[in-house]
């Protein structure tokens, strides 16, 4: 009897320890619901019903430049953006593999901007992409592929070990979203309504000593192509219409040659700005680096036609359950438009 009591005591103590540890971890890990919301995007995907027809993968050039709401409203295309800030190409590859655990879309759209980085540049960006991923072999591999010199795998397993000194930075939202998360994106899209025009004179373009992408970056693009072929998913490579940082012609030529060799379509949106109807005086919120709502809706409208006509992505507006889900999403989308209009003093 005494032995049973001892075992029960140890078990209780163990549970208490684990509970305390997890509670502290949940409290101290950043929630990304205040000013830096981009770190919340990756995790939001798992709350979705996963039967998307189009998945966008990439960095800020996808999550700020395409509006899935417009794709749904105008083409009935059910899409989701799996993008995070400065998402490196190896992270995009593992997020793609992660996506394939859950669903098989008709089309994957990958933005090639991240080819310029063969290695991760910052732990902060790594964390924003990797922490939101659900544990899987893809997440383990993504962490291993991403870690900078000073990072440790164990700190991804137990984020408390990394964030234990956030006590002084805790905000009300850390307590408010301790057990549930607020949705901050619109199917992965980050909305901005304000506008800041591209200046008449963009900075002169600085030449590079070496325009070639690294072997490592190419190898992950190979893996993206192979994964899509393996799953029978159509791949569309794009370069979003951001005018800064500069997208060099030498880079573009390499991607064009690669796409041709692989039999994959590549669209550089910078070559189609007139067709898309982009006005760089009104369609960007940061002088041409990212689109605002107006620009993102135009880009979605333009790519929507291609997805529907050239890739045969079906119009699913007739599906009752999906339409009902989108009705809720569109309501939230419109509510944020109104909220931002007020915030930025727009009519």
């Amino acid at each position: 009897m005494k032995r049973v009591k001892t075992i029960l005591r140890v078990l209780c103590a163990l549970l208490l320890f684990i509970g305390t540890f997890l509670l502290l971890q949940s409290l101290l890990t950043p929630k990304y619901v205040d000013d830096v919301v981009e770190g919340a995007f990756v995790a939001e995907y798992y709350r979705e019903k996963k039967d998307h027809d189009v998945i966008f993968i990439g960095d800020c050039e996808v999550y700020e430049n395409f509006s899935p709401a417009v794709l749904w409203e105008e083409y009935g295309v059910n899409s989701y953006i799996r993008g995070s800030a400065e998402q490196y190409i190896f992270q995009s590859y593992y997020l793609l593999e992660d996506t394939f655990y859950y669903e098989k879309p008709s089309v994957v759209v990958f933005n090639v901007q991240s080819l310029q980085f063969g290695e991760a540049q910052s732990e902060a960006y790594n964390r924003m992409t990797l922490e939101g991923m659900r544990w899987s072999p893809a997440k383990v591999a993504a962490i291993r592929a991403s870690m900078t010199e000073d990072e440790h795998f164990i700190e991804y397993v137990f984020p408390l070990l990394r964030y234990h000194d956030r006590w002084s930075d805790l905000k009300q939202t850390d307590f408010q979203y301790l057990f549930h998360k607020k949705t901050v994106s619109h199917n992965g899209y980050y909305m901005r309504l304000d506008a800041k025009a591209v200046p008449e004179n963009l900075p002169p373009v600085k030449p590079l000593g070496d325009y070639s992408f690294s072997d490592r970056a190419w190898s992950y693009l190979d893996r993206i192509v192979e994964a899509c072929k393996r799953e029978g998913v159509q791949l569309l490579l794009i370069k979003a219409p951001s005018v800064f940082p500069h997208w060099y012609d030498e880079w573009d030529e390499q991607v064009k040659a690669y796409a041709e060799k692989q039999g994959v379509r590549y669209i550089n949106f910078l070559e189609h700005t007139e067709e898309i109807g982009l006005d760089f005086a009104t369609d960007t919120y940061d002088a041409g680096q990212h689109m605002n709502l107006s620009g993102a809706e135009k880009c979605a409208r333009w790519i929507g036609r291609i997805l529907a006509e050239d890739y045969g992505v079906p119009d699913r507006r007739g599906e009752e359950a999906l339409s009902a889900a989108w009705a809720g999403k569109l309501a939230s989308y419109r509510a944020e438009i109104e909220e931002q209009k007020e915030r930025y003093g727009l009519s």
Binding site: F17, T20, L24, Q25, P30, D150, L160, L161, H164, D165
Partner: peptide, 20 residues
């Protein structure tokens, strides 16, 4: 538990929300 949580990473820790 608290000690492990708060002091396991005893080395210098960078603030995560900063530019590179």
């Amino acid at each position: 538990a608290l000690l492990l949580g708060l002091a396991a990473c005893a080395g210098e820790v960078k603030e995560i929300r900063k530019t590179a």
